[in-house]
């Protein structure tokens, strides 16, 4: 098993937050993990990427050029990551979820957590991680923030 996940958004959208949770939750299931953030000098405003790899063997290099799963959270980010797509790549493009986001009143600030739900559903399906570990990590990281209820809701909708 070797899975390459690329998460892409604008700085400040919480790309690194979800990469952190996914890598920790997978590590707890004893997988080999590699996670490297990639952002420009301006941490806000520029494109923020996270390269996450999950494997049952040692990971030799932190980056890759084609992704198995690609998460896109902004227009600016899409331009930077199109080259990582291949025909079999599973893509989360926020644009494709516009109706679900609107119907469920999920705002811009919780978009990353909605995407996390989508990603966790796939990874859970492949027996890579457990949702209860993700729940704990999520609460540990965001439980004290004032939009915690919104995030919890976004995560739940994403999981469905």
């Amino acid at each position: 098993m070797f899975l390459k996940i690329l998460l892409a958004g604008d700085g400040g959208q919480g790309i690194q937050t979800i990469a952190d949770i996914v890598s920790k939750a997978s590590f707890q299931k004893n997988w080999e993990i590699s996670y490297i953030p990639n952002y420009g000098l301006e941490q806000r405003g520029g494109v923020s990427l996270a390269f996450v790899q999950i494997s049952d063997t040692k990971i030799n290099y932190p980056k890759f050029s084609k992704a198995d799963i690609l998460v896109i959270l902004s227009e600016q980010a899409r331009g930077r990551v199109e080259n990582y797509m291949q025909p079999e790549t599973k893509v989360f493009d926020y644009k494709d979820f516009a109706d679900i986001l609107a119907d469920n009143k999920i705002g811009e600030k919780s978009l990353n957590i909605f995407a996390l739900g989508w990603l966790v559903k796939i990874l859970k399906g492949q027996n890579i991680l457990e949702t209860d570990i993700v729940n704990l990590l999520l609460e540990e990281k965001l439980g004290l923030k004032d939009i915690w209820d919104d995030n919890k809701w976004a995560y739940k909708v994403g999981l469905q």
């Binding site: 080999e32 993990i33 996670y35 490297i36």
Partner: peptide
């Protein structure tokens, strides 16, 4: 920086 900033097991 790739090795320093990456997280691994």
């Amino acid at each position: 920086g790739y090795l320093l900033k990456s997280r691994g097991v």
